[in-house]
Nucleic acid binder design. Structure first.
Lengths: 338, 338
DNA sequence: TCGGTTTCCGTAAACGTTTACGATCCTATT
DNA sequence: AATAGGATCGTAAACGTTTACGGAAACCGA
């Protein structure tokens, strides 16, 4: 005898009443409810996930899809750990759990998501690493599964999203560098089809144009979004026919490699070449100190969760004013690098 | 009409046969099986996770428990992404999926694990961030749930484990530094109750003793396992009454902060103070180059998965020779820091 | 031709919950 | 005292699978 049946037998009441008591239904005597809760606590009973999900059609789980593998796509590492923490503080209020759906680098993300959804794993999904065109959006919309994306895409099915304000970052970075006299500005654009790169470069191009400058293609340095990629950029800069005097990094994952590479070719950030990037726990301890954009990852996680819940029928009324779509602001923290 | 019933109706055969066909049972005509598989593919049918788990008592999911939050416990960031990738290559062979069970920094890990297990989430668990005494081991053993730990603990319930060879690292580091003439060696020990710190410091003490040296308590620098923690250590070193001439870091997460801190107090690694740590993607681009220990994270993940499977009745025969307990070797990669 | 196998498939029970429905008892009102 | 209505609980169906069991047809050897 297991599960709720055991608990019911132990208390000598029916399993229906036990279930109602545990789920806070109104039609159960308060004294009985107390007894049930007490016994459940003592026997360590927790409702079996599969049985409950099967009956209710809801799992109580929110999935955060992310890619695994040595070369992380776009955002780095500790980035997610902080966002998760924010998401969870919201989910915990509703007894929802967060799990990371880990798509192997060997599997197609679209296939992976399909499998997870068909399995009925999660009641809601958070998508990251959004691509220029992202079939996952359409798929989830067809499945009528609530989801939110961390990042935009040209594929738009009307779902809520939150994205970092790369537009603002582009404008401010260019503005700052031009004002400091730079005319040859380089842009580091990670390989892959992530949408953020397109947005960023495009807005940089516009900002340059406003000053009568044009963005030449050989000032766009495409590379891998990791330290090795940053290292490679340093070489490419010096090999360039018109070496840029300033570099803007849209990613935060490769700045350490870039620093190292620049040092090896005798360029010191802030003195010989200006660098503007993104702040991160790692970047805080670079030398010379990085000039870059910063944001609260935990708050971002909170906003993501609240927006997602606001699209889920069961929780929508609790978050009436949650933001549906938002460019998440980033603040420039001045260092010595540019 | 949904699920397997829809598929069966569509093919005009019984749901029993459909299920058998999909699950590769022998007693089904090959022609029928082909039709079923083809139709399933075309309609995008995947068995519902809850229904299947309820009936089979198995979920087809392996859980990897990890803590979230801005200060990661012990191992960093990209560390896990690489390990995951290794785990998944093994799991994929058996159509098992890996999910990360994300324990919020606000919740007690023991409680969290209990909830996840009671829910019946996973058929097997991989535990990381093992503590000096870890109640999770006993709990999982009582539940008879297969699990493996990445890390040891004084709590030992006979489960398989794989742990980095901190013993070897301690011995080799001390040996190398003593040979280079160092007599005052400092050790960075992250805050928290992770077991690895105890093992490491103890073995260092023994290695020192072999050379007639003793490890004085004020040469043990306890700090947070992140960059800020490394930064703080630099200050504490100079404030010490007998400043060490060499430092060994058991963690890989704080070396960047330490470098920065040392620079600010005018100490250059490799010239003014020796540093031995752990290699990582980030560390590869430090300057001066770090001397540190390196390992294949992907292979580690593969070994973890194979060992776990070998303890699960359904897969045990496939991995008869999987290692049950293993100190995972690390190789010293010489840099310029020590 | 006939009994015995094999091959294939349908039926129905089970997994652990939740919840609609109805039954029972009690209280209050007329 | 009769009745209405509320409070509380038990019963049983349903969720979507898998699988033990048994039956029907086909096949095979004597």
């Amino acid at each position: 005898m297991k599960g709720i049946r055991r608990l019911a037998e132990h208390l000598d009441i029916s399993i229906g009443t036990v279930s109602r008591a545990l789920n806070g239904k109104p039609d159960v005597n308060e004294e009985t409810r107390r007894r049930v809760l007490e016994a459940a606590e003592r026997l360590g009973y927790v409702a079996n996930q599969s049985g409950r999900a099967l009956r209710k059609g809801a799992t109580g789980v929110i999935g955060f899809m992310m890619q695994t593998g040595p070369e992380i796509t776009g955002q780095g590492d500790i980035f997610f750990m902080s966002v998760f923490d924010g998401v969870q503080t919201v989910l915990a209020r509703h007894k929802l759990d967060l799990v990371a759906l880990l798509c192997s680098s060997e599997e197609d993300p679209d296939d992976y998501l399909k499998r997870m959804v068909a399995r009925g794993f999660a009641d809601g999904i958070i998508l990251s690493a959004t691509r220029r065109y992202d079939a996952r959006f359409e798929f989830l919309a067809r499945q009528k599964l609530p989801f939110i994306t961390l990042g935009r895409s040209l594929t738009d099915v009307g779902q809520p999203w939150i994205d970092l304000d790369f537009e603002g970052m582009a404008e401010m970075s260019v503005e700052r560098l031009v004002k400091a006299g730079h005319r040859e500005i380089g842009f580091v654009w990670p390989h892959g089809d992530l949408n953020l790169g397109y947005i960023f470069v495009e807005r940089c191009r516009e900002a340059l144009a406003r000053h009568g400058l044009s963005l030449s293609e050989d000032h766009i340095f495409r590379t891998n979004p990791n330290e090795a990629g940053g290292y490679a950029v340093a070489r490419n800069i010096t090999a360039s026919s018109r070496p840029p005097t300033a570099i803007i990094l849209v990613n935060e994952t490769l700045v350490a490699g870039l620093y190292r590479g620049l040092e090896e070719v005798g360029l010191r950030p802030g003195r010989d070449i200006a660098i503007i990037g993104r702040q991160s726990p790692q970047a805080r301890f670079l030398s010379p100190r990085l000039t870059g954009f910063e944001l609260s990852l935990r708050d971002l996680g909170i906003a993501l969760a609240e927006s997602l819940l606001s699209t889920m029928p069961a929780y929508a009324n609790l978050y009436p004013q949650a933001m549906r779509r938002k460019l998440w602001p980033m603040a420039l923290v001045e260092g010595e690098s540019g």
